[in-house]
C-alpha cells in the first residue's frame, strides 16, 4: 500500500476536524458559521483532489495528446461553492434576527433568555 498517496486525504481530514471542532465547541454563532465554511472547504478540497490526474492539465481541450484532469468534480464543486455562499447568507441573516430578538449571539446567553437558568 502506498501511504504517500494518501497524505493528501489526511490533510483535508485535518481541516475538516478543525472545522467540526469550531462548530461544536464555540458558542458564538458567527464563529459557528465560519467553522461550517471551513468544513465545507475541506469537503471541496477532497472532491477536487479526487479529480486530479498526475501529469494532467486543466480540462480545457487543446490540440494534441494531452491528459486532462477529471472535469466532473469541478462541475459539482463549482455549483456547490455558490450554493455554499447562499446558505451562508441565510445563516447570517438568521443570526441578525436572533441578535435583534435576544440582544446577543452567544449560545449560552440565548439559552438563559429562553429558560431562565
Amino acid at each position: 500500500m502506498n501511504l504517500l498517496g494518501l497524505v493528501n486525504y489526511w490533510a483535508f481530514i485535518i481541516l475538516m476536524m478543525i472545522g467540526l471542532y469550531i462548530l461544536l465547541s464555540r458558542g458564538n454563532l458567527i464563529k459557528k458559521m465560519v467553522g461550517l465554511s471551513v468544513f465545507q472547504t475541506a469537503v471541496f478540497i477532497m472532491y477536487i483532489s479526487m479529480g486530479k490526474v498526475q501529469g494532467g492539465t486543466a480540462p480545457i481541450l487543446m490540440n494534441g495528446d494531452v491528459a486532462y484532469s477529471n472535469p466532473l468534480p469541478h462541475v459539482l464543486i463549482l455549483t456547490a461553492i455558490v450554493v455554499g455562499v447562499a446558505t451562508t447568507a441565510v445563516g447570517l441573516s438568521l443570526i441578525v434576527r436572533i441578535h435583534e430578538a435576544y440582544g446577543t449571539i452567544e449560545e449560552d446567553e440565548i439559552q438563559i433568555e429562553d429558560f431562565g437558568t
Partner: peptide, 14 residues
C-alpha cells in the same frame, strides 16, 4: 490541482 474554474469561483465568492 487543475481546477481553474473552481479556483476562480472560490476566489470571487469565498
Amino acid at each position: 490541482m487543475d481546477a481553474v474554474d473552481v479556483a476562480f469561483t472560490e476566489a470571487a465568492v469565498g
